[in-house]
């Protein structure tokens, strides 16, 4: 208890801490939001709750890491930094391909089945992906250290490591690109139509099978890009996927399906809330805070809906 009071005291004693936590929270949240974003798509459009979400993230991370370590691109004169940054779009493309194959092999067979089947299938997929990565790359933790500077402000309390800033910008760029794509392009419209009512969409001549394949590939690609950013700012290991799966589920559940900007907002919010929570209660309670927030959101939503129902009566 004393600890909690002292920690809260610091927030008032050094107001700049608040800014530091919010900035860190946004940088962290943006990466979680990216994985959640893909999940919201797949969940909303195909009604598949993809438990292998985090493993796609990790696979994307390994894709970029491997690219830097093999040194092929360095041999034509690119620096390590450039290859790592290039790893993000490359991971996007590679994971697109893997996502498409996964769809054709597995997801297409479970999509019309009940919830339990798709959960089991993606759970199995998650286990398999982790083990395949483990056999391919070993179980050591890996990361890419870019040689960028850290900029410090406010007496060293606010730190902006360039790698993290670049990662956040890339995540934001990708999110914006996907939102525009969903709003403007024909395929985006088809995806939204399928999400609303797949039968009606089919009647209108939309090839829903193609839409599903596209959506799932897009999800894998977004996760891949997120992983390629994560390997630059944190560490990856074949079995760390579950962290991202859990966060993605919490964020999507809190934001609601089909609400893509909401997913981003929830992601950033959870990032910041976790930073505050970790400071006040201790970092061990970080995830508990995210889940408590989710409960509160769900509770309020329930209340809201009840009120709506009464109004309708």
């Amino acid at each position: 208890m004393d600890q909690i009071l002292t920690n809260t005291g610091y927030l008032f004693q050094y107001p700049v801490l608040n800014l530091a936590f919010i900035i860190d929270g946004i940088m962290i949240g943006s990466l979680f939001a990216l994985a959640a974003y893909g999940l919201a798509l797949v969940w909303g459009v195909m009604n598949v709750k993809n438990l292998a979400q985090g493993d796609f993230v990790i696979a994307g991370g390994y894709c970029s890491w491997w690219l830097v370590k093999t040194g092929w691109l360095q041999s034509i004169g690119l620096s390590d930094n450039a290859v790592a940054l290039l790893g993000v779009p490359i991971a996007f493309v590679v994971m697109w391909g893997i996502g498409w194959m996964t769809y054709k092999l597995i997801i297409t067979r479970v999509i019309e089945r009940d919830l339990f089947t798709s959960l089991l299938a993606t759970f199995g997929l998650a286990i398999m992906m982790a083990q395949i990565l483990n056999l391919m790359f070993g179980s050591d933790t890996q990361s890419l250290q870019l040689d960028y500077k850290t900029y410090s402000f406010a007496g060293g309390f606010i730190n902006l490591p360039m790698a993290k800033v670049i990662g956040t910008c890339m995540a934001a760029g990708l999110a914006v690109a996907v939102i525009i794509f969903m709003k403007r392009s024909r395929m985006g419209q088809a995806i939204r139509a399928t999400a609303q009512d797949s039968r009606a969409a089919r009647v209108m001549g939309i090839d829903t099978e193609k839409v599903y394949a596209f959506t799932f590939s897009l999800n894998a690609a977004i996760c891949g890009a997120a992983g390629a950013i994560i390997v630059m700012v944190w560490v990856i290991q074949p079995f760390y996927g579950i962290t991202y799966s859990v966060r993605a589920f919490v964020i999507v559940t809190a934001a609601g399906l089909g609400n893509l900007p909401g997913v981003i907002a929830a992601g950033l919010g959870i990032g910041a809330a976790e930073q505050y929570g970790a400071h006040i209660f201790g970092i061990g309670y970080q995830q508990a805070i995210a889940v408590t927030l989710l409960l509160i959101v769900l509770f309020f939503r329930l209340l809201q809906q009840r009120r709506k129902r009464q109004a309708l009566n």
Binding site: Y10, D24, I28, A278
Partner: peptide
């Protein structure tokens, strides 16, 4: 005296406290 969660990905909040 902090206990890191198993799925730790970022420890900036602890390091901020250490700086304090």
């Amino acid at each position: 005296d902090e206990k890191l969660p198993r799925d730790l990905s970022d420890m900036t909040s602890i390091l901020t406290k250490v700086k304090l």
